[in-house]
C-alpha cells in the first residue's frame, strides 16, 4: 500500500466522514421524532391519523432508500418542490427511519401485557399515571435493542447518498478511484472510516442488549 497516497487522500475522507456523520445522525434524530409521534398515534388509535401513519409505514418500509431519494431529489422538483441535496438526504433517511422506528416503538408499547394495566388500575392509578409509570418504562426498555438495530441500519444506509451527488464517503472513494486508480488505498480508507463510524455504535448496541435482558418482566425468562 502506498502511504503517500493514503496521506494525501486522508483530508478528503475526513471531510466526507463529517458530512456523512452529520447527515446520518440528523436523519436518525428526525426518524426518532417521527417514530415516537407515529408510535403514540398508533398506540392510542387516534382516528384518522393512525390510518395515515399506517399507510406511510407500509409505503416506506417496502421501498429502498435509493428509490425514495431519486423520487425526492429528481422527481419532486418537477412538481415544483425543489429541495437541496443535503436536506434531501436528511429527509429521505428520516422518512425511511421514521417508518422503522414507528413499527419498533409501537410493538414495544403494545407488548406490555394487559395484566400490567389491569393491576395498575386495581391499585387506583389514573390513566395518565399508568402510561407514565407502568407502560412507558417497560416499553422503552424492551424496544432498546430494536432501536439500536435501526440506528445501525440507518447509518449503513447513508452509503447511498452519493447517488444524489452528496460528497459522502462513498462518493469520495468512487471519485478518487476514477481519478487516480489507487483502488486498494481508497477502499482501505473507506472501510476504516466506516468502521470508525459504526463499530462504537455496534458495540454500544451489544452492550445495551445485554443490559436490557434483565429488564424483561413476567414469564419470559
Amino acid at each position: 500500500m502506498d502511504t503517500g497516497a493514503l496521506n494525501s487522500y486522508l483530508p478528503l475522507y475526513v471531510r466526507a466522514f463529517f458530512l456523512t456523520v452529520r447527515i446520518g445522525w440528523t436523519g436518525i434524530a428526525l426518524s426518532l421524532a417521527i417514530g415516537i409521534a407515529g408510535a403514540f398515534v398508533l398506540h392510542f388509535k387516534v382516528p384518522v391519523l393512525s390510518k395515515v401513519i399506517k399507510a406511510y409505514v407500509e409505503l416506506f418500509r417496502n421501498t429502498p432508500l435509493l428509490v425514495q431519494l431519486f423520487f425526492i431529489y429528481f422527481g419532486l422538483p418537477k412538481a415544483g418542490i425543489a429541495i437541496p441535496a443535503e436536506t434531501c438526504g436528511i429527509l429521505g433517511l428520516g422518512l425511511l427511519g421514521g417508518s422503522y422506528m414507528t413499527e419498533s416503538l409501537r410493538s414495544g408499547l403494545d407488548a406490555v401485557p394487559v395484566s400490567q394495566t389491569e393491576s395498575a388500575l386495581a391499585l387506583g392509578f389514573t390513566k395518565r399515571r399508568i402510561f407514565m409509570y407502568v407502560i412507558l418504562p417497560q416499553a422503552v426498555i424492551s424496544t432498546m435493542p430494536a432501536v439500536m438495530a435501526n440506528i445501525i441500519f440507518l447509518l449503513k444506509e447513508t452509503s447511498v447518498f452519493s447517488a444524489i451527488s452528496l460528497m459522502d464517503l462513498m462518493f469520495t472513494a468512487k471519485d478518487l478511484i476514477g481519478l487516480y486508480y489507487d483502488t486498494t488505498e481508497c477502499l482501505f480508507l473507506l472501510v476504516v472510516f466506516y468502521m470508525i463510524m459504526l463499530l462504537p455504535v455496534s458495540m454500544l448496541g451489544s452492550f445495551v442488549e445485554k443490559k436490557v435482558r434483565f429488564g424483561i418482566y413476567g414469564d419470559q425468562v
Binding site: 449503513k156 483502488t183 486498494t184 477502499l187 466506516y194 455496534s202
Partner: peptide, 22 residues
Amino acid sequence: ETVRIMPQMVLLFIVYFGATKA
C-alpha cells in the same frame, strides 16, 4: 460483525473494484 457494520455498498465496491485490482 463485519456484515453488521459494513454497508452493502462498501462490500459491493470492495468485490467489484477491489477484486479486479487485487
